[in-house]
Structure formats: C-alpha cells, structure tokens
Design a protein around this nucleic acid. Structure first.
Lengths: 223, 223
DNA sequence: CGGCAGTCTATTGTCGACAATCATACGACT
DNA sequence: AGTCGTATGATTGTCGACAATAGACTGCCG
C-alpha cells in the first residue's frame, strides 16, 4: 500500500486559533499589561460566540499570560521586576536540564536545526534586522529545549517563552543586546557539540544572567 | 475597628471545584487511564450544566492529565515507561532549581514546615499507614518547591506532581519504597539546612533516581 | 460638604438547545 | 467473501438567553 509519510491533517479547533491570536497580540504589545479583555467584545470582533472566546481566555489564564478576577474579568498580566527575574530563573532550570539531556545523548544531528538558526540570526544581525534577531533568539531556545526530547520540559518552556516575550514587549521593544547575542548563541552551540557538560551550563547561565541584568535596569512601561 | 486577621472568604468558582474533583478521581485511580470522560455524563452526575464541566475538563487537558481528541472526547492520559522517566527528569530539574534558591537564601525558617512533614511521615510509617506516607511524600516535595518562593517553579511543579500521582495509581497502588523513604527525606532536609549545595543536589538525584528505578520495574496496569 | 445607603448598569457565570462531526453497524456491490 | 457506501446514533462544538455578582452612580442624610 502507498504509505507515504503523511503528517496528520491540520486540525483547526476554533478556541485554539483564538488563543493563538490573543497570545500574539499580547506578546507583540497590542494588548498592554493591565488591559481588560471582555469576552463579549472579543467575541464580536472575532465574529464568534462567547463560548470559544471564553475557552481561549481560560487557556491563556492558565498559562498565566492573563489574570482572571472572578466576576470582574480577565486582564493582561502585569510583570514586575521580580517576575522577570523569576521567569529567567525558571528558564535557567529548564534549559540546564535540557542541555544535560542533549550532551548525555551526544546526538549532534539534533543540533543541526540550531546551527541553522544561529546562521540566520547572524545574517539578520548583520542586516540590522533586530526584530528578526529577537524572534530567532526565542526560536533558538525553544528548539534547544525541544531537542532534549522531553515532552514535559518542552511544555513548561513554552509558557516561559511567552512570558519572556511579554517582558520584552513591556520594555517597549527596547531589545537590549546587540551583536553579543549572536556570539553567545554561537558559543553555546559549540559547547553543546562537545561532550562536556560544565561549559554548556556556564554558557547558559552567562547568557540568561546577562539578559535578566539588562532587562532589570531598563525602565518598565507603566500602564 | 475590630480588624481580626480574617483570611479572604473562600471563593468557590464552580469550574475549579469540578476540576479538583476530577483530578482527585484521576490520581486516586477511580478513573483509570484510557477511560473516556463524557461531559454530558459528568454534568449529570455533578448536577451542573455542561459549561462548567467543559471548562474544568479543558483545564485538566492543559495540565495533560487528560487527552482531548477533537470531536471524539477527552480521555484519561495513558503514561508509558518513557513518560514516567520524563516526569521524573522534569521533577529533578525543578527541585534542583528550588533547592539552589533555598540554600542560596539560607532561610532556615522556611524549612520548618518541611521538618514537620518529615515528622508526620515518620509517625505514619511507624504506624504502617503507607497511604498517608505516600501522600505526605508528595506534600513534602510540593512544600519544598514552594519554599523556594518562585511562582513559576511552583506552577510547573504542581502539574508534575499530579502526573506523578497518576503514575503511582497506574501501578495499582503498589507504593514501592518503605522505611527508606522516611530516611531519604530526613537526609534531604538536613542537607537543606546546611550551606552546601552539592549534598542537597546529591540527595535529590538519589531520591528521584531510586523512585523512578523502582517504578520502572513494576508492571504497568493495562487498561 | 462628606459619608452612606440604595439603585443601576455592565460584565461574568451558567444554562439548555441546536448544529456539526465522528464512530459504528448494516447492507449492497464487485 | 471482502470491500465500499450509507444510515444511524452518540458526542462534541457552538450559540443565544437568563441569572448572579461586582463596581459606579445618584440621591439622601448627618
């Protein structure tokens, strides 16, 4: 029988696309922290009933991108400096664990997508497209964790990445680092290709520590 | 004014209590892996409409205790040996990070609840109440992570604990370890009270590694 | 003029009904 | 006999309406 390697057909559950839409709006800053998202209003704009909207909102609440106050509504979460530090603490924990798994398995083939991302990041940086760089930065770390092959680590990391993006949106798009970003990812990738765990962990710590330090000293946008 | 330290009145959002109810049923084995949970059926039993039930189910789906197959229903997730290993890998990552924070802060007051739990665990073990021991075991680790004071670590860990409980339910209530459990927690607590990080991490690794090894060699209940 | 009670409105929370989708069982055709 | 097509049944997905709650406003009283 003709058993081509067909990927399962693309499912489009309505609440999922609604959640994605709203999430995108949150992390790109269209919905600044503190804004109330009324389900009736969203339902009208998206031309669906309140049911799916409610379901989507509830999903985002559980990701803690939104905060639900009973009988009052859902609001875009507001992150203070402590939260930023906390996000990066959690990211460090997950990335370290992922790196351990990757080095342990020593499967350099899994690192190839990472190499491509660094490549593209370098190109984007040279052309001054910093918007792309920050996007590729997130993608790099996501792919890194996915490469560990742990469903749970990946699951936890997805939420953290969304919160990271929210932090940076709250910083008014001031993407702090510049060319060092590319260098740091290159070094991390090289370390991963080696067999030693310690330098990998050092790279991760350094990378995230620098990021959180730079974010911490920028002024938060008040809403 | 009479300002007694009244805790905020207990909020009871319906979907929340439904989710808790179902979660309890899952982790205590009343709903074995693979069973379908029809929302209509649950709604009737709980004497509420399908709306809140649907919301609760969706919450559990996102915790990955349930699996939703579009237009077909939600089913209790089935964990294989790989999943068990994965749960414990993720737990290790979170607990290590939490332990780092605790040792770093060196606030022994936060460890007092842990000491009490170990105390009670010891008592329960002596009285042969292994059901209580396994419960206190979970509580210990939950409180441990909470003691780190990181919202995100706590959030991630809650899901992992639920999955852990599910694993053990799938093992037909065969709680593997016995008195060593109490000893291990005592040693972990002592290590936490010290200033050194390395022995703490060693304790955690040992504890979780032993657990996953013992679980791995038990037969999984087929459903 | 300030504080408080009562009302009013907007929003969420809940419900029951309809429509769409998928699985199963049966029958027809090759 | 096996396979395909069709009918049926059950379940999810979606919708609009009702009820409950919290905040805001107004008017009254001190």
């Amino acid at each position: 029988m003709a058993t081509a390697n067909l990927p399962p057909v693309e499912r489009k559950p309505t609440p999922g696309v609604i959640a994605d839409t709203i999430r995108t709006r949150i992390i790109d800053g269209s919905f600044p922290p503190g804004t109330q998202l009324g389900e009736a209003q969203l339902a009208e704009q998206l031309e669906v009933s309140r049911g799916p909207v409610r379901e989507a909102l509830q999903r985002l609440v559980q990701e803690e991108l939104l905060e639900a106050r009973p009988h009052r509504g859902v609001f875009v979460a507001e992150l203070d400096a402590g939260d930023i530090a906390d996000v990066y603490r959690a990211r460090r924990a997950v990335e370290r664990a992922a790196a351990e798994l990757i080095v342990e398995r020593d499967d350099d083939g899994a690192l190839e997508p990472l190499a491509r991302l660094v490549e593209r990041m370098s190109g984007a940086a040279q052309r001054g497209r910093w918007g792309n760089v920050v996007d590729l930065d997130r993608r790099f770390h996501e792919v890194l964790v996915d490469a560990a092959g742990s469903k749970r680590l990946s699951r936890m990391y997805r939420t953290l990445l969304a919160e990271t993006a929210m932090c940076m949106a709250a910083l008014e798009g001031a993407y702090p680092a510049r060319r060092e970003i590319v260098r740091e990812h290159q070094r991390l990738l090289e370390a991963l290709q080696g067999d030693e765990l310690a330098p990998v962990l050092a790279c991760i710590d350094e990378h995230l520590d620098r990021a959180v330090r730079q974010l911490a000293q920028l002024p938060l946008v008040q809403t």
